[in-house]
Amino acid sequence: MTRRAPLSLAARLAVAAAVVAVVLVLAYARSGSGIVVSQAVLTGLLLGGVYGLVAMGLTLIFGVLDIVNFAHGALMTVAMYGTVLLASHAGLDPYLTLLVTAPALFGIGMALQSGLINRTMGSSLANQLLLTLGIGLLIENVLLLSFGSEPRSVAVGYAAPLRAFGAVADLTRVIAFLGALGLAALLYLLLQRTRVGTAIRAVAANPDGAQLVGIDVRRMYVLTFALGTACAGAAGTLVAPFVTVEATTGELFNIIAFVVVVLGGMGNVVGALVGGLLIGLTEQLGGVLLPEQSPLLAVFVVFVLVLFLRPQGLFGRSS
């Protein structure tokens, strides 16, 4: 067996673009309508931005703590309920609640990591997975117990449809997309340009080495988990105006975020954002290609293919 030289990043992006183009053509052939396709692309990209933000939090946690976090979606739901309460009871603008939910989720993340998860650092995969699973189930069902199974929603006074290329996008989705991109950029800057970010990256690359140069690794774990959770929280608030808020709403985002994280390369923050957009597209175009199936089916098929063929993700170096 001879090994081919690894493709450069540019080549891989080109391959990805080619795949997207082929899928677009197929979708057009299948639906026979340009509007259907451009609608799918628009919806997919807008939602994909949010997937990207959720996945950035998840991949950060994975990259630094090496933990598969099954509580991520439930934490996102907490923020959704926070927005519901603050918007409908306190009359706040839903987007303003971001100033409350993101810091609150940051705090919850800190508490969870320092109180519970730090105790299992370095123990078996199964243990950590089960711990986050337990936390997720606990949060979800506390929400169910507190708010009941009746779905909630958040009203936005100025919601209006926007048009582009014959496709329609709700203003709330556009805001969510832009908000997600903005926060993603902020997170990226934080990781790349600040001392804390450098310390976090050092821990991700080599915990023992980081310890040696005097970085408090446990504290970085706490901070990272908190940051990741704040991402989930911000995403929860951003999507609250256009999803029905139930105790299990975050579950789906959690699942999709896993797919995105693997696609983008576990631990790769930029990969997560690009992966989010790709999975948003996959979901919508999959719905066009296989109209009688759930759009998620296409997502899982892509997931399994990526797991098999490129477990290090589209943008990861094989490490």
Binding site: L138, E140, V142
Partner: peptide, 9 residues
């Protein structure tokens, strides 16, 4: 579920 999640933790 809360009970068995707590038990699990």
């Amino acid at each position: 579920v809360i009970l068995y999640a707590a038990l699990l933790i």
